[in-house]
Design a protein around this nucleic acid. Sequence first.
DNA 1: CAGGATCCTCGATGATACTG
DNA 2: CAGTATCATCGAGGATCCTG
Lengths: 135, 135
Amino acid sequence: MKPDHFEVTSACSAVHHILARVGDKWTVLVVSYLGNRSMRFNELKRAINGISQKMLTSTLRSLERDGFVTRTVYPTIPPRVDYELTDLGRDLLVPVRGLGDWAIKNEQRVSEARARFDAAHGDAQVQRRFADAAE
Amino acid sequence: MKPDHFEVTSACSAVHHILARVGDKWTVLVVSYLGNRSMRFNELKRAINGISQKMLTSTLRSLERDGFVTRTVYPTIPPRVDYELTDLGRDLLVPVRGLGDWAIKNEQRVSEARARFDAAHGDAQVQRRFADAAE
DNA sequence: CAGGATCCTCGATGATACTG
DNA sequence: CAGTATCATCGAGGATCCTG
């Protein structure tokens, strides 16, 4: 670990790729559900409230491409497609849960810091800049 | 952990907030640099190749708001502003590095899975859908 | 030096309609 | 059921100019 330089190698982009992946809107939710058991497309869609069919499709495709889930098609009528976590996908869940646990454990400290910041900087300005605060 | 339902509580949004934060384009890079020592604004800007001044500002503001960094102004001329990680910020680095280490360790498996997927699905279609692959 | 204010682009996400 | 195809939107992010 150098003092003020990071090697911009494949390691760097690998880290960024994974961070961006788990940081996106639906990936972790999908993977979490599949962590329990394999699920069908519409089953996932119903379980994850608010996801559009397009985003579920593209999220699943990306996860499949990276080797985190398998897609199994049963050529029946009507068709049936099962999605299931791979070992790699289950493995990913471990460090992701680490971050999740950290988030839950420190939720209070973060929201306190936010309240302090907002109070110190006047609500008007802050609310303009962080209009998403209510999320 | 219920079989197929997640409580949509504050814990859920806390987790999502942290995941989205570490998944964004610059946060982890900024926090990593500050993990070594406190740094000034333009010092960070030079260190992080490609970040715009606007994004550095907003990234730092968000980090400050959530209590991950402190902002210290020295009213000299020219002005000087130091950014430094808080204990909370340093603490966050632990699980984030966990994920980073996982990414580095499994980089090979992911890229192999990708190669397999792309080969199996024909380059034309894949390349249209995942034009960002070269990133 | 450390930003604030503006303008602009583009991609992520969503809504809707259609199909094997 | 499990998608694909299209169109529309909206905000993240970048470029540029300005100032205390």
